[in-house]
């Protein structure tokens, strides 16, 4: 017994400082991408396809006015940044990726703006092109409309039923981590529950396999209203690596493209898997709580 107390003293209190302070992310973390319009050959009307061709998730595609990168498909592997001959694609360490609007997950070329204060903003991910050029980025946060605007009561108690519909286990693991003492999301009134009857939202992971479709439907139907759906990770948002957007179909007969069309998603949390800070930031903003500002 004494040993337990001594060990507790040795290890100390370990709850992380986020969201009271900015999260402590590793230098090589790959968060929100930035496409530099001044460098991107494709944005300049060039026929360059270097990044499109290497993207394993088909997350980059060509639009009339240049390239688009869909964070809802992106696996954040960084291959596009390595492939770009001009270093136009930069992954910043910005963890704030989630949005209540699907369209807001699409990143389009933009002009670089330095932060107003020196040392403001966030650096680029080290270990990729642009990682050591000293530029710092202030990128617009994707919009999140708080669910509490709809239902005030959720602000203090928000219960999630996690459903893994053929997820690989990584999104699930990094959701589970939110319940550990490091993130301790219980202190914000957010928790996982076993029964859909007790849940306010489904936290959906995985590309939704044919074999999980019925169980997912049953779970959704068992939830009392008001309720919502949160798609966690690229698979749940779009099918991720299991989808070919060029053909607009799932790659395999065994899966569909993430959350089914009749199950509208209220909050999209991109990543493969999303970092726990990305998810916590998303949930807190979804509940109308304050998160630390960048500059």
């Amino acid at each position: 017994m004494l040993e337990i107390f001594l060990e507790r003293l040795r290890q100390g209190a370990r709850t992380g400082t986020f969201p009271d302070a900015l999260p402590d992310l590793p230098a090589r973390f790959r968060g929100r991408p930035f496409i530099d319009a001044e460098r991107c050959p494709a944005a300049a009307g060039d026929g360059c396809r270097c990044c499109l061709e290497v993207c394993p998730a088909h997350a980059i595609y060509r639009e009339e006015d240049g390239l688009s990168l869909d964070m809802g498909l992106c696996s954040f592997c960084g291959e596009c940044a390595r492939a770009c001959p001009k270093g136009a694609i930069i992954f910043t360490v910005d963890w704030r990726l989630a949005s209540t609007v699907r369209e807001a997950l699409i990143v389009r070329p933009a002009r670089y703006c330095a932060p107003s204060l020196p040392g403001g903003g966030l650096p680029a991910s080290h270990g990729l092109p642009g990682g050591t050029d000293g530029r710092r980025y202030v990128l617009p946060e994707s919009p999140i409309t708080p669910v509490t605007a709809r239902d005030r009561s959720l602000a203090r108690s928000f219960r999630l039923r996690q459903v893994t519909a053929a997820g690989c286990g990584a999104c699930e693991a990094d959701l589970n981590v939110l319940t550990t003492l490091v993130y301790d999301m219980g202190r914000f009134g957010i928790d996982f529950v076993a029964s859909p009857r007790h849940a306010d939202a489904i936290a959906l992971t995985g590309p939704v396999s044919r074999n999980m479709r019925q169980a997912l439907e049953d779970c959704r139907a068992a939830m009392p209203s008001p309720s919502c759906v949160i798609a966690v990770g690229a698979c749940a948002i779009s099918g991720g690596l299991f989808r070919d957007p060029a053909a607009s179909v799932a790659l395999s007969a065994g899966i569909q493209e993430g959350a089914p069309p009749h199950m509208p998603v209220d909050l999209f949390i991109p990543g493969c898997p999303p970092h726990p800070c990305t998810t916590l930031d998303a949930l807190l903003r979804f509940l109308g709580k304050k998160t630390p500002p960048l500059d």
């Binding site: 394993p56 998730a57 286990g169 396999s209 044919r210 698979c235 991720g240 395999s252 065994g254």
Partner: peptide, 28 residues
Amino acid sequence: YHHRGVEKLLAGLSPARIPSLVEVTAGD
């Protein structure tokens, strides 16, 4: 319940895309 047809998909992919899909075969 988690069957996604990974083996079949892998055999149909170009070698450059294989590692990314393998990464999500068993996430842990």
